[in-house]
Amino acid sequence: MVTCVNDAMYPETGKAVVTLLRRLGVEVDFPEAQTCCGQPMVNTGYLDEAVPLVRNFVNTFDGYDAVVTPSGSCAGSVRHQHSLVARRAGDRALEEAVARTSPCSYELSEFLVDVLGVEDVGAYFPHKVTYHPTCHSLRMLGVGDRPLRLLQAVRGLKLVDLPKAEECCGFGGTFALKNAETSVAMGSDKARHVRESGAEVLVAGDNSCLTQIGGLLSRQRAGVRVMHLAEVLAATEGSTGHSAGHPVDAAEVGA
């Protein structure tokens, strides 16, 4: 599952996941019926509106060995919220389908470390990097230090500590709009810590959080780039284009 945000806004992340998984010998498919996991609706309180999305999710993914997604919060929603939505719909068949699809849905770092059993994915990324553990990957999924282990194994990469790393960036989905001022106050502190880390690239496993932190960093002209974990892990010595530390305008890649 590429996720709706990545599909529409960050296609490079999806491409990086495909590149990475294929490099590791995984047969990758993108079932085109997929859309959104329903998390924005659930977290804003619109449970009824989420029912068709959960239905679409299970119809799309039921039968695959594993559903891999480059987003901690979408994986969290699939694993922890889909059953709730199915129960609300009062549909036994949907509940049963959810019971099949939820457990085999993984956030990218979980899939790499736990299912494939790799930490060194053969990546090369010669930059000074700091890592922000997103709240849902950290506390909802409990991915622990898996992303850090993956990053540590990347050749050329220098990992530096992010002060107060486990503090929320303030994105929070519709929270970023409903409580915009509070959200910006939280995000500004996070952006300050990123600058203090001295890193040139901030990496996280969720493009929503990176939109928040990156949006603030760029407004502050901080000169720090944000990048999804998948794009760093997909980068190799020979690769040019989107993921080898030479980011280009997506328009040029896609046109």
Binding site: D7, K15, G187, L216, R219, A250, A251, A255
Partner: peptide
């Protein structure tokens, strides 16, 4: 906060 422009081609 800044927001990137939408890419010209979706995934």
């Amino acid at each position: 906060r800044d927001l990137p422009q939408p890419p010209t081609e979706s995934f």
